[in-house]
Design a protein around this nucleic acid. Structure first.
Length: 222
DNA sequence: GACCAGGCACATC
DNA sequence: GATGTGCATGGT
Protein backbone atom coordinates (compact mmCIF):
# COMPACT_ATOMS: atom_id res chain seq x y z
CA UNK A 1 0.00 0.00 0.00
CA UNK A 2 2.76 2.39 0.95
CA UNK A 3 4.60 1.89 -2.35
CA UNK A 4 1.34 2.39 -4.30
CA UNK A 5 0.66 5.55 -2.35
CA UNK A 6 4.02 6.80 -3.49
CA UNK A 7 3.32 5.92 -7.12
CA UNK A 8 -0.05 7.69 -7.15
CA UNK A 9 1.35 10.78 -5.45
CA UNK A 10 4.44 10.62 -7.63
CA UNK A 11 2.19 10.90 -10.69
CA UNK A 12 0.48 13.83 -9.06
CA UNK A 13 3.70 15.72 -8.40
CA UNK A 14 5.02 15.05 -11.88
CA UNK A 15 1.82 16.22 -13.56
CA UNK A 16 1.60 19.19 -11.25
CA UNK A 17 5.08 20.31 -12.21
CA UNK A 18 4.24 20.01 -15.88
CA UNK A 19 0.81 21.66 -15.96
CA UNK A 20 0.88 23.90 -12.89
CA UNK A 21 -2.28 24.96 -11.05
CA UNK A 22 -5.20 24.43 -13.40
CA UNK A 23 -7.78 26.38 -11.35
CA UNK A 24 -10.65 23.99 -11.89
CA UNK A 25 -13.61 24.08 -12.39
CA UNK A 26 -13.81 26.81 -15.08
CA UNK A 27 -16.96 28.48 -13.74
CA UNK A 28 -17.91 31.62 -11.84
CA UNK A 29 -20.43 30.15 -9.45
CA UNK A 30 -21.39 26.79 -7.92
CA UNK A 31 -24.57 26.58 -9.96
CA UNK A 32 -22.56 27.14 -13.14
CA UNK A 33 -20.44 24.13 -12.16
CA UNK A 34 -23.59 22.07 -11.74
CA UNK A 35 -24.88 23.16 -15.15
CA UNK A 36 -21.52 22.40 -16.76
CA UNK A 37 -21.35 18.99 -15.10
CA UNK A 38 -24.58 17.96 -16.80
CA UNK A 39 -23.78 19.53 -20.16
CA UNK A 40 -20.29 18.07 -20.42
CA UNK A 41 -21.48 14.47 -20.34
CA UNK A 42 -19.72 12.74 -23.25
CA UNK A 43 -19.10 16.12 -24.85
CA UNK A 44 -16.16 18.33 -25.69
CA UNK A 45 -15.86 21.22 -23.24
CA UNK A 46 -15.70 23.84 -26.02
CA UNK A 47 -19.24 22.83 -27.01
CA UNK A 48 -20.35 23.17 -23.41
CA UNK A 49 -18.89 26.68 -23.26
CA UNK A 50 -21.07 27.73 -26.18
CA UNK A 51 -24.17 26.45 -24.41
CA UNK A 52 -23.20 28.16 -21.15
CA UNK A 53 -22.61 31.42 -23.03
CA UNK A 54 -26.10 31.13 -24.48
CA UNK A 55 -27.58 30.61 -21.03
CA UNK A 56 -25.58 33.52 -19.65
CA UNK A 57 -26.69 35.85 -22.45
CA UNK A 58 -30.27 34.94 -21.60
CA UNK A 59 -29.63 35.59 -17.90
CA UNK A 60 -30.10 31.92 -17.10
CA UNK A 61 -27.13 30.88 -15.03
CA UNK A 62 -29.46 30.45 -12.05
CA UNK A 63 -31.61 27.49 -11.10
CA UNK A 64 -34.86 29.45 -10.94
CA UNK A 65 -34.19 31.10 -14.32
CA UNK A 66 -33.57 27.75 -16.00
CA UNK A 67 -36.68 26.27 -14.44
CA UNK A 68 -38.70 29.22 -15.73
CA UNK A 69 -37.62 28.65 -19.33
CA UNK A 70 -39.99 26.92 -21.73
CA UNK A 71 -38.74 23.44 -22.63
CA UNK A 72 -38.09 24.24 -26.28
CA UNK A 73 -36.19 27.41 -25.49
CA UNK A 74 -33.96 25.64 -23.00
CA UNK A 75 -33.27 22.96 -25.61
CA UNK A 76 -32.23 25.56 -28.17
CA UNK A 77 -29.98 27.42 -25.73
CA UNK A 78 -28.02 24.30 -24.83
CA UNK A 79 -28.11 22.84 -28.33
CA UNK A 80 -24.35 23.26 -28.98
CA UNK A 81 -23.54 20.89 -26.12
CA UNK A 82 -25.12 17.97 -27.97
CA UNK A 83 -27.84 15.52 -26.82
CA UNK A 84 -29.80 18.71 -26.24
CA UNK A 85 -33.25 17.17 -25.68
CA UNK A 86 -31.85 14.66 -23.23
CA UNK A 87 -29.72 17.22 -21.43
CA UNK A 88 -32.49 19.82 -21.21
CA UNK A 89 -34.61 17.32 -19.27
CA UNK A 90 -31.66 16.28 -17.12
CA UNK A 91 -30.70 19.87 -16.43
CA UNK A 92 -34.21 20.70 -15.27
CA UNK A 93 -34.26 17.79 -12.87
CA UNK A 94 -30.88 18.75 -11.45
CA UNK A 95 -31.92 22.41 -11.16
CA UNK A 96 -35.04 21.32 -9.24
CA UNK A 97 -32.78 19.52 -6.80
CA UNK A 98 -30.43 22.51 -6.56
CA UNK A 99 -33.27 24.95 -6.11
CA UNK A 100 -34.77 22.87 -3.30
CA UNK A 101 -31.50 23.11 -1.38
CA UNK A 102 -31.13 26.81 -2.14
CA UNK A 103 -34.52 27.42 -0.58
CA UNK A 104 -33.89 25.15 2.40
CA UNK A 105 -32.74 26.41 5.76
CA UNK A 106 -29.78 28.70 5.10
CA UNK A 107 -26.98 28.29 4.44
CA UNK A 108 -27.83 25.95 1.57
CA UNK A 109 -26.33 22.43 1.59
CA UNK A 110 -24.37 23.10 4.79
CA UNK A 111 -26.36 20.75 7.00
CA UNK A 112 -26.41 17.83 4.59
CA UNK A 113 -23.79 15.06 4.62
CA UNK A 114 -21.69 14.17 1.58
CA UNK A 115 -23.27 10.73 1.47
CA UNK A 116 -26.83 12.07 1.56
CA UNK A 117 -26.14 14.59 -1.19
CA UNK A 118 -24.51 11.88 -3.30
CA UNK A 119 -27.49 9.58 -2.88
CA UNK A 120 -29.87 12.40 -3.77
CA UNK A 121 -27.90 13.19 -6.92
CA UNK A 122 -27.66 9.55 -8.00
CA UNK A 123 -31.41 9.32 -7.53
CA UNK A 124 -31.92 11.89 -10.27
CA UNK A 125 -32.46 10.39 -13.71
CA UNK A 126 -29.50 11.47 -15.84
CA UNK A 127 -27.01 11.82 -13.01
CA UNK A 128 -24.44 9.05 -12.78
CA UNK A 129 -21.42 8.73 -10.48
CA UNK A 130 -19.10 11.06 -12.41
CA UNK A 131 -21.63 13.85 -12.69
CA UNK A 132 -22.61 13.47 -9.03
CA UNK A 133 -19.01 13.52 -7.84
CA UNK A 134 -18.08 16.48 -10.06
CA UNK A 135 -20.93 18.43 -8.49
CA UNK A 136 -19.95 17.35 -4.97
CA UNK A 137 -16.29 18.27 -5.41
CA UNK A 138 -16.32 21.29 -7.69
CA UNK A 139 -19.63 22.94 -6.81
CA UNK A 140 -20.05 21.98 -3.17
CA UNK A 141 -16.45 21.50 -2.04
CA UNK A 142 -16.88 17.98 -0.73
CA UNK A 143 -13.82 15.68 -0.63
CA UNK A 144 -14.75 13.05 -3.23
CA UNK A 145 -12.41 11.85 -5.96
CA UNK A 146 -13.85 12.19 -9.46
CA UNK A 147 -13.23 9.28 -11.81
CA UNK A 148 -13.58 9.74 -15.56
CA UNK A 149 -12.57 8.14 -18.85
CA UNK A 150 -9.02 9.42 -18.55
CA UNK A 151 -8.63 8.12 -14.99
CA UNK A 152 -9.75 4.73 -16.25
CA UNK A 153 -7.26 4.78 -19.14
CA UNK A 154 -4.40 5.70 -16.85
CA UNK A 155 -5.33 2.92 -14.42
CA UNK A 156 -5.52 0.44 -17.30
CA UNK A 157 -2.26 1.48 -18.93
CA UNK A 158 -0.38 1.32 -15.68
CA UNK A 159 -2.22 -1.77 -14.48
CA UNK A 160 -2.97 -0.07 -11.19
CA UNK A 161 -5.92 -2.43 -10.87
CA UNK A 162 -7.06 -5.47 -12.85
CA UNK A 163 -9.28 -5.12 -15.94
CA UNK A 164 -12.53 -5.79 -14.10
CA UNK A 165 -11.72 -3.30 -11.38
CA UNK A 166 -10.75 -0.68 -13.94
CA UNK A 167 -14.22 -0.86 -15.44
CA UNK A 168 -15.84 -0.26 -12.06
CA UNK A 169 -16.24 3.40 -11.12
CA UNK A 170 -16.28 2.82 -7.39
CA UNK A 171 -13.30 0.46 -7.42
CA UNK A 172 -11.27 3.16 -9.15
CA UNK A 173 -12.55 5.85 -6.83
CA UNK A 174 -11.72 3.74 -3.80
CA UNK A 175 -8.23 3.09 -5.14
CA UNK A 176 -7.44 6.78 -5.46
CA UNK A 177 -9.19 7.82 -2.26
CA UNK A 178 -7.17 5.30 -0.28
CA UNK A 179 -3.94 6.72 -1.69
CA UNK A 180 -4.49 10.44 -1.99
CA UNK A 181 -4.90 12.47 1.23
CA UNK A 182 -8.53 13.65 1.48
CA UNK A 183 -7.94 17.32 0.81
CA UNK A 184 -10.41 19.16 -1.39
CA UNK A 185 -7.73 21.21 -3.14
CA UNK A 186 -5.74 18.05 -3.87
CA UNK A 187 -8.70 16.12 -5.27
CA UNK A 188 -9.66 19.18 -7.29
CA UNK A 189 -6.25 19.58 -8.87
CA UNK A 190 -5.62 15.85 -9.34
CA UNK A 191 -8.73 15.30 -11.44
CA UNK A 192 -7.98 18.45 -13.44
CA UNK A 193 -4.45 17.17 -14.08
CA UNK A 194 -5.74 13.80 -15.21
CA UNK A 195 -8.09 15.43 -17.71
CA UNK A 196 -5.33 17.75 -18.92
CA UNK A 197 -3.07 14.73 -19.38
CA UNK A 198 -5.76 12.81 -21.21
CA UNK A 199 -6.24 15.68 -23.62
CA UNK A 200 -2.50 16.15 -23.91
CA UNK A 201 -1.96 12.57 -25.04
CA UNK A 202 -5.03 12.33 -27.20
CA UNK A 203 -3.79 11.39 -30.65
CA UNK A 204 -0.73 9.46 -31.78
CA UNK A 205 1.76 11.87 -30.20
CA UNK A 206 1.72 14.24 -27.23
CA UNK A 207 0.90 17.82 -28.08
CA UNK A 208 4.41 19.03 -27.27
CA UNK A 209 7.56 17.53 -28.80
CA UNK A 210 9.78 15.44 -26.52
CA UNK A 211 7.06 15.49 -23.93
CA UNK A 212 8.59 15.03 -20.48
CA UNK A 213 5.49 13.16 -19.39
CA UNK A 214 5.92 10.45 -21.98
CA UNK A 215 7.81 8.13 -19.66
CA UNK A 216 5.45 8.70 -16.78
CA UNK A 217 2.08 8.47 -18.49
CA UNK A 218 2.28 6.58 -21.76
CA UNK A 219 -1.41 6.98 -22.47
CA UNK A 220 -1.47 7.15 -26.25
CA UNK A 221 -4.87 6.85 -27.79
CA UNK A 222 -7.62 4.95 -26.09
C1' DG B 1 -16.30 11.73 -44.08
C1' DA B 2 -14.74 9.46 -39.93
C1' DC B 3 -13.63 9.90 -35.42
C1' DC B 4 -13.78 11.86 -30.98
C1' DA B 5 -15.34 14.34 -26.67
C1' DG B 6 -14.77 15.82 -18.86
C1' DG B 7 -21.86 9.90 -19.47
C1' DC B 8 -26.02 7.87 -18.71
C1' DA B 9 -30.23 5.03 -19.13
C1' DC B 10 -32.37 1.39 -21.02
C1' DA B 11 -33.00 -3.03 -23.67
C1' DT B 12 -31.42 -7.44 -24.38
C1' DC B 13 -29.15 -11.65 -23.60
C1' DG C 1 -24.08 -9.00 -14.73
C1' DA C 2 -22.18 -7.96 -19.04
C1' DT C 3 -22.74 -5.95 -23.43
C1' DG C 4 -24.90 -3.04 -27.02
C1' DT C 5 -27.32 1.07 -28.40
C1' DG C 6 -29.39 5.75 -28.62
C1' DC C 7 -28.73 10.31 -27.54
C1' DA C 8 -26.34 15.18 -31.10
C1' DT C 9 -23.16 18.85 -31.65
C1' DG C 10 -18.79 20.86 -33.35
C1' DG C 11 -13.65 20.44 -33.89
C1' DT C 12 -9.80 17.92 -36.09
Amino acid sequence: MRRQTNIVMQYYRQLNRHFGDLHWWPAESPVEVVIGAVLTQNTNWSNVEKAICNLDARGCLRAEAILALPKLELEQLIRPSGYFRLKAARLRRVMEWYSRHEKASPPPFRQVSDQTLREELLGINGVGPETADSILLYALGRPVFVVDTYTRRIAQRHKLLNETQCRDYHELQKYFMERVPPEIALYNQYHALIVATGKHFCGPEPKCAQCPLRRYLPLGTR
